[in-house]
């Protein structure tokens, strides 16, 4: 069963007088439990597609269905709530709050829930344990390595237990070893915790860890890279 289904999805931007077609009538389905790598050259629309699936951008036309809910026409307020409950985001540049500790960063999405302080604490501890950073809970981002920061980012993404993880170049800013650790983590989340993972990457090595890879080129989706 498809967790994510996009139909006739188009996205265009205005750049001065020019209209840039980033995505053109794109159809795709991502089954539940999939680990999908999205590849393609810069500007091909990978991140745009990810943002649209995650409900942080609106399509110019077409529909987006996630977990049986149409999100392309969802009002902003409802969409914000939906994101908090259903999607975890992992960013290339981690985007942690520099003044908060790892634990406080991970706790952020839980502040929006009705959980008590002790429940939040429990969940944060579990998420940090899952990414192997229990001993760094009290550290601020600048006291962590890049790999550790990304693991905190992943802990933040999974702490509210979303079904869909959207990762935008999660290893793009890391060395190979740290990158592999992150990919191991995503792999584990997919296999052991049945998270559906969609990962945008430039790196074939990272893409190889996914169950399947789709290629975006000039706004169109394919299973083979453009020659």
């Amino acid at each position: 069963m498809a967790l994510v289904e996009v139909k006739k999805l188009s996205k265009e931007y205005k750049r001065g007088v020019e209209t840039v077609h980033v995505l053109r009538d794109l159809d795709a389905a991502i089954p539940e439990g999939d680990f999908l790598a999205l590849m393609g050259p810069s500007g091909s629309g990978k991140s745009t597609l990810l943002n649209l699936i995650g409900g942080i951008d609106k399509p110019s036309s077409g529909t987006i269905d996630v977990g049986g809910q149409r999100i392309d026409n969802m009002p902003e307020r409802k969409l914000t709530q939906w994101r908090a409950q259903h999607v975890g985001f992992v960013f290339q540049l981690y985007h942690l709050m520099p003044m908060l500790t790892a634990a406080r960063n991970v706790e952020l999405p839980l502040l929006l829930t009705g959980l008590s302080r002790s429940e939040r604490k429990q969940r944060v501890a579990a998420a940090l344990a899952l990414v192997g950073l229990s001993d760094r809970a009290g550290h601020k981002p600048k006291e962590l390595s890049g790999g550790q920061e990304q693991r905190v980012g992943i802990a933040r993404a999974i702490v509210s237990d979303p079904s869909l993880l959207l990762c935008d170049e999660p290893t793009g800013d890391l060395d190979r070893k740290a990158g592999d650790e992150i990919l191991d983590l995503l792999d584990g989340l997919n296999k052991e915790h049945n998270k559906t993972v969609v990962m945008v990457t430039h790196d074939p090595h990272a893409a190889a860890r996914a169950k399947r890879t789709l290629y975006l080129n000039d706004g169109l989706l394919g299973t083979e890279p453009e020659a």
Binding site: I56, Q81, R83, A84, F89, H95, P109, L112, R156
Partner: peptide, 8 residues
């Protein structure tokens, strides 16, 4: 980022 995480 906070908005993406679900902060209205």
């Amino acid at each position: 980022v906070m908005s993406i995480l679900g902060f209205s």
